[in-house]
Simulated assay, not measured.
Amino acid sequence: MARRPTLSLFGKRRDRPLRVRAVDTEDLAVVSAYLQDAVVPVSEMAYEADESRFVMVAGRFRWEIAPDGASGGRRAGGDGTPYERVHTGIRFEGVRSVRTKGIDRADRGLILNLLSIAYADGYVDLVFAGESTIRLDVESLSCHVEDLGTPWPTVFRPSHDDDGSTDGAA
């Protein structure tokens, strides 16, 4: 019997929200690509210890609708179509503990730029620009991602400098 895919994308049309789950490293690599350059306010993150859950809401750049061939530029595609961001809920289940590096959790106005998400040896690492990381100690990999609400236009497309910093997060 063939392995049933755990990653599910409902709809490829522009008006359909992203809704995926990840239970292995291959799934998580796809989720990480969708969430690259999401902006995450520290105020929109929470570790729910009683529920063994870590949650956050991010402003996700909608890479899947960015015009093909658009290269690292800052403005919308050549056809004048604006880029889009959407609020996205991200949930990790089975979280035993959360550690942070380079993040002032008391600074509720701080906004982080998510670069990647990786899983290895029972840990999920959320890596942000500026050498900041959130490490989740998990029982197993269980991540759920779902777009919330209506996307909004932006003329800025995230780009990465050689030093790993980003700009154009609006």
Rank of each mutant, 00 (worst) to 15 (best):
Y47M: 01
E48T: 04
E48G: 03
A49W: 06
A49P: 04
A49L: 05
D50E: 11
D50V: 00
E51Y: 01
E51A: 10
S52M: 12
S52W: 00
S52L: 05
S52E: 09
R53K: 07
F54T: 02
F54H: 05
F54Y: 06
V55W: 04
V55R: 12
M56P: 11
V57A: 00
A58G: 06
A58L: 06
R60Y: 15
R60F: 09
F61W: 08
F61Y: 15
F61L: 02
R62N: 10
R62Q: 07
R62G: 10
R62V: 15
W63G: 02
W63E: 03
W63N: 01
E64R: 10
E64C: 07
E64W: 12
I65Q: 14
A66G: 09
A66Y: 08
A66M: 12
D68N: 06
D68F: 13
A70F: 03
A70Q: 13
S71D: 13
G73V: 11
R74V: 15
R74C: 06
R75N: 13
R75P: 03
R75A: 10
R75Q: 09
G77R: 01
G77C: 04
G78T: 08
G78L: 13
D79L: 10
G80V: 14
T81S: 09
T81E: 14
T81N: 13
T81Y: 07
P82C: 06
P82E: 14
P82S: 09
Y83I: 00
Y83H: 15
